[in-house]
């Protein structure tokens, strides 16, 4: 991949253009139970990304030919609002990129959801990117995992996702839009933290086998932090009640 010619300086004295170290995540804020109508929902602010995830279902799979008599079918729509980027007005029709991201996101959750529990039904995952600043697929997957938990859908794990990029010789965690645009490689990964298995792996650019090993360990390390944030988002709405009763008892 040849980067455009007006490439800015992305690494200076070991610091990134926004002051982060190579292994730093951006600030992440996750809020659960944000939409009333949905069966489950979550809102994530990941750096400048603002993304909503909503879950509808399990409900009867329609149209009928999509039903599977043995398991629930997962349907996923990742979409970017036409005003979400800092460039021109986007198209409101799904792009080829969105179709691909919807597909791989669906596949992650087919693995973790106990789909055999709901034969004949569908579970819809909607991911709406309201504002984008690089790494939206990872943030969307992380938020969707929380939203599924708020919908009470049984899962064997709560996946998270984050990408590792390469700038020159440096590997950097969690690229923003500018870093992504001028990077030499981009490796989005999603991990099931209980088993440490990869349920999303994509890459483009240039990467040696050893660099992949390092990238994977960076993603694993970041997982502790992201998993904690996902848990807090699920717990904190109940915290007041829990505090109250723990005092009374």
């Amino acid at each position: 991949m040849t980067a455009p010619k007006d490439k800015p300086e992305l690494m200076k004295n070991g610091k990134r253009h926004d002051g982060r170290s190579p292994e730093d995540l951006r600030n992440i804020k996750i809020e659960a139970f944000v939409l009333n109508n949905a069966d489950g929902s979550a809102y994530i602010e990941w750096g400048n990304n603002k993304i909503l995830a909503a879950i509808y279902g399990p409900k009867e799979a329609l149209p009928k030919h999509t039903q599977d008599p043995e398991r629930a079918v997962i349907k996923c729509r990742y979409s970017m609002a036409p005003f979400s980027g800092n460039e021109e007005h986007g198209s409101s029709r799904p792009s080829r990129r969105s179709i691909e991201i919807s597909k791989i996101t669906k596949e992650i959750f087919e693995h973790v959801i106990l789909v055999e529990e709901f034969p004949g039904s569908e579970i819809d995952i909607f991911i709406e990117v309201l504002q984008s600043d690089g790494g939206t697929r990872a943030a969307g997957i992380t938020a969707a995992a929380v939203a599924l938990a708020t919908a009470g859908i049984p899962m064997i794990d709560t996946p998270y996702a984050v990408s590792v990029g390469k700038v020159g010789k440096d590997l950097i965690l969690d690229m923003d839009y500018i870093e992504d645009k001028y990077s030499d490689a981009d490796v989005p990964m999603a991990i099931c933290p209980r088993t440490g298995e990869l349920s999303l792996l994509q890459m483009d650019g240039i990467l040696s086998p050893d660099e992949f090993k390092k990238a994977f360990s960076m993603v694993k390390k970041a997982g502790d932090q992201i998993t904690k944030l996902q848990r807090n988002a699920l717990q904190s709405p109940y915290q007041k009640t829990m505090d109250k009763y723990s005092k009374e008892v």
Partner: peptide, 25 residues
């Protein structure tokens, strides 16, 4: 010859890091 240029995992099943490294080799 020397580098990975693109990767894509598909379908619901996961891979362990060891499996991915074996596949790369």
């Amino acid at each position: 010859k020397d580098n990975i240029r693109a990767m894509q995992k598909g379908l619901h099943g996961p891979f362990t890091a060891k499996e991915v490294e074996e596949i790369i080799d």
